[in-house]
Design a protein around this nucleic acid. Sequence first.
DNA 1: AGCGCTTTCGTAAGCGCTTTCGTAAGTCGG
DNA 2: CCGACTTACGAAAGCGCTTACGAAAGCGCT
Lengths: 365, 365
Amino acid sequence: MPKPGPGLRLIDVAQRAGVSLATASRALAGRDGVSAEVASRVRQVSEELGYVANPYARTLAGGSSSTVGLIVHQVDDPYFSEIAGGVIQLADEQGLLVQICHSGRDPGNELRQIRNLIAQRVGIILVAGSGYGDPDVESEARTVLAGYQRGGGRVAVIGRHALGADAVLPDNEAGGQALGEHLLGLGHRRIALVAGTPELNTVIDRMAGVAAALRAYGLSLADVPVVHTDFVREGGRIATERILREHPDTTAIIALNDAMAMGVLAVLRERGIPVPDRMSVVGFDDVSVAGDLAPSLTTIRLPMTDMGRMALELALKPPTSRPRRRPTGQQLVIRDSTGPAPASPAPASPAPAGPVPNKRQASHP
Amino acid sequence: MPKPGPGLRLIDVAQRAGVSLATASRALAGRDGVSAEVASRVRQVSEELGYVANPYARTLAGGSSSTVGLIVHQVDDPYFSEIAGGVIQLADEQGLLVQICHSGRDPGNELRQIRNLIAQRVGIILVAGSGYGDPDVESEARTVLAGYQRGGGRVAVIGRHALGADAVLPDNEAGGQALGEHLLGLGHRRIALVAGTPELNTVIDRMAGVAAALRAYGLSLADVPVVHTDFVREGGRIATERILREHPDTTAIIALNDAMAMGVLAVLRERGIPVPDRMSVVGFDDVSVAGDLAPSLTTIRLPMTDMGRMALELALKPPTSRPRRRPTGQQLVIRDSTGPAPASPAPASPAPAGPVPNKRQASHP
DNA sequence: AGCGCTTTCGTAAGCGCTTTCGTAAGTCGG
DNA sequence: CCGACTTACGAAAGCGCTTACGAAAGCGCT
């Protein structure tokens, strides 16, 4: 294991400034008990020498850590990378460092990462995820985090309620409803729902919104095929194949996030099913590439970068007795992947499986 | 600043195992001087109690830090987030934590982040970037990192040579050449180059490859318009607008990364210029969405995730006297954004600026 | 002048760990 | 059966910092 360099110590600064170690420490920490004159002298010497406190020593002695741990499902998922970008942005402004961990979409793993970060004595833990499926893990996590908070640790969660911590939360239900209303308003009645794993509260809330929209049109979730798969691109692919097979008359697909919507679009493209002429598709999140997809994706915009910032802001504030909730805006962005429902009902036969009529086949390797 | 919790201490484990602090430390560190019997007893107790060493104390005492610092331009840029994903993956397997910093594409900032990480005494520094424009900053960074390495720190860079450290490096020149040959082979002769800022060595190398391809066809870089802009999506937009204005007869655009290529495609779409029928476009990197773009993008595939892993692997190995270079594969992926050069020369008049003939206008907000 | 009070600063005690050093056993040849 | 080694472990000295705590000095008050 590599060793960090030696580096300037506080005592060097103190000596150079002609004061004791303790005084130098106080001066740099900005606490009182030091005359203004001495304080500024110390600060100046420190500046000149380019002194930076050893964070390990500082944390060990003072018990205060300046690093924030961020747990995401996967950092190369655009949804999470944008959140991470926001966190890092603000952390940098505040002179904090950010530890990123992957939970890999696995609750057990997420719990392990939380434990790990606590053991690492980070001062702040941010959990960006979609909630637990497993209630045991859920309550265990809540317990662990409660202990951590009792010990002075700060916690905020992003995109989920629960865990007894401050939360930055979009109105997933309103978003789902907007999506449903948009499609229903375009005349679609044979809508399929590509949902993530059914335990994620994100999925539950977004589905509830869709259900509300359906209800307004005299329909219910029972009337639409709902396919639960992984909350990622591949999940969208699998779900779409199943929908095309089992419900070939579908005219619109709601994917509960953009990642799955990308999988949906990919399958439709491969099958040569024109979007939106024969099938409308919507996503959720508005990841930055959503507007560049083929076709550009109608979706609900979530301010991921801001969400990251807000979560860290929340965690940085003095804690309150009750967990705070901070809403984020969400907004329907209409692009090219949605259009009016086809006038004539779609053919009852499944889409052709052979070579497709469209211009050129993607060489998706 | 939040305080990390108290937590189990090594002495607790030692007492429970009926040995001294020192013996427990040795046992858990796996060094010899401890009988096998005692060692296993200590390990078992530690396991049972769920003991995790306080990394701050450990680092302070032993001088060894188990966190790796990763500097990227911007973590929500897919190129970098995929690299980060690879680093985090391997780090997690190895029980290391990852600190992520943004350089924001600014060499001065990058240097600042390096200094910061060194001050934070991380054990490993990974720099993913494209090299410095400013030679002063470059040599300063090299000096700082050399001192860090002398002190036992490990350094590896990703996607650039230089800095006197181990490097994971794609053959950017070969990639550029493959791109050029692909387009030239399709009959394109009026090719424009959307390059990033001219100081990045990534840009220089990729351009050199393109130049080599041109040479084989009796052309040179002097014959093609080269637009240097920011190495991001917006840069691609700006460059494309300029190319369309100043060189309306262009039939193919080479963007030196996918981010810029996305900007190129966006402008072409807005202007209603069909790709690839009237204009072919290629990118470089093959970020994960490249195949889902409108149209899907012909590009050079780089194994970003592996590059992240490899860089950390390199840094974890015992250092060598000379910096190592580890090549990464790169491979042309042909998709829908390239096609034969239009038979008739493009019209000399600029593309229509008004409403476009294609199906529907993106509502890019 | 003498008292308590505040302000300013130094001394020293850790934070939890690694590691050097010393010591009590055990090993061995003679 | 004894000195010279080896082996297994404990005591203690830090790593660089923060933060009680206490001493010294300056202040107004009686």
